[in-house]
Design a protein around this nucleic acid. Sequence first.
DNA 1: CAGGATCCACTATTGGATCCCG
DNA 2: CGGGATCCAATAGTGGATCCTG
Lengths: 229, 229
Amino acid sequence: MTHAVPEPKSEQELLHRAWSVAGLTLGELGVRVGVEVPEEGVRGKGVAGTILERVLGATAASRAEPDFVALAIELKTIPLAASGKPKESTFVASISLSAMADTDWENSVVYKKLAKVLFVPVEAASKTPLRDRRIGRSYLWVPTVEEWELLRADWEQLAVMIGRGDVEQITGHLGQVLQVRPKAASSRARRRAPDEEGAVQWTMPRGFYLRPAFTGAVLARLRAESDSR
Amino acid sequence: MTHAVPEPKSEQELLHRAWSVAGLTLGELGVRVGVEVPEEGVRGKGVAGTILERVLGATAASRAEPDFVALAIELKTIPLAASGKPKESTFVASISLSAMADTDWENSVVYKKLAKVLFVPVEAASKTPLRDRRIGRSYLWVPTVEEWELLRADWEQLAVMIGRGDVEQITGHLGQVLQVRPKAASSRARRRAPDEEGAVQWTMPRGFYLRPAFTGAVLARLRAESDSR
DNA sequence: CAGGATCCACTATTGGATCCCG
DNA sequence: CGGGATCCAATAGTGGATCCTG
């Protein structure tokens, strides 16, 4: 068995811990926390997230809460191309129709998840085997007024469409920075739902995602601010 | 022989003439002005421009001047995809090093060429044979203050690089809306130039082009304004 | 060659589909 | 199934190379 890492007691402790693993590989960290890293990339989806949760001491319980409950910080690993730009979109939250219906922006799951995020970059050149990919310099993101405004505008547009029952018309094209995409093991997956009453229901699970161009801009800002300090 | 079309005497006459050919094909217009339209797309580069010059009565002479000298209007055909967006960039002018050196923006060839442009859209789905492609609704473009500002900023950046002798470092990547690209029959073509004195010279001819995203935005604006009138 | 432009191989981006684990 | 995400086929975009005519 491996050593369980305790939850960090302060933002500073979390950041120091995150910075201390910069430069290490997923393979090295996997050994440390007892997670085996698959050979094939396709078998390793999510493994970086799982490893870093354990390495940094995320609270493994209650998943309706942030990863670091006491600090109110959400952990996100983010795959970076050699250029430094995100290769993939970032999953934020699954969509619950009922929750969307009677919630406004500032009480939404998306708002809560994004209030304070620790981004841990992971090298993601597809030629590099999963276990040899290195961790980068982490940054703590608290959205600026402008960033919140972009997120709110997209969320509200999508919330209105869902409220109207235009759910099936929502595609990944909508939203400048926040988009809705399928979120399931397979497109055959269906969420159980009463089909009676003409009640609006997803035919399949979907989630909110941040576009790569947006997270790329956020990281660029955080790097620039870090450099000037 | 065919009937030569006289130069239009007013903007209004030119616009009416342009609007009157909307919906007709390049094949139909080619017959009217004695220009044969090739089968293959690759053999027909520029043929749309030539046909419309003749159909609209452009002044065929002095090429340092606008197509319609008296009206100070430049004619540009622009290939549109089914989506309504430009498929290609728009050639503006060849670059003369000597002219760039001792000219400022408001005396530049680019500035003069773009002061007033008649855009004639031509259908450009690659599956449609050249002679069956239809003319669209034409618009007269006079750049807004914002559009001029974008153009000026790009032109000045490029002019500075040329002035510095960084000519070989200029690639098509530079410029938000205006870019520099090769302009020659072949990349083997060389412009004659004295190689003495270390004087800056192009190794090959290049030209200024408007990016498709920019001309697309311009056309979208013109359509919107036209609709609201 | 200058003026009229488009071709097209390559790269970047997108967004629907999918994978693992507990 | 929900939370951790990435895969990858298809599309859009870029920009160097090229074609025709007078």
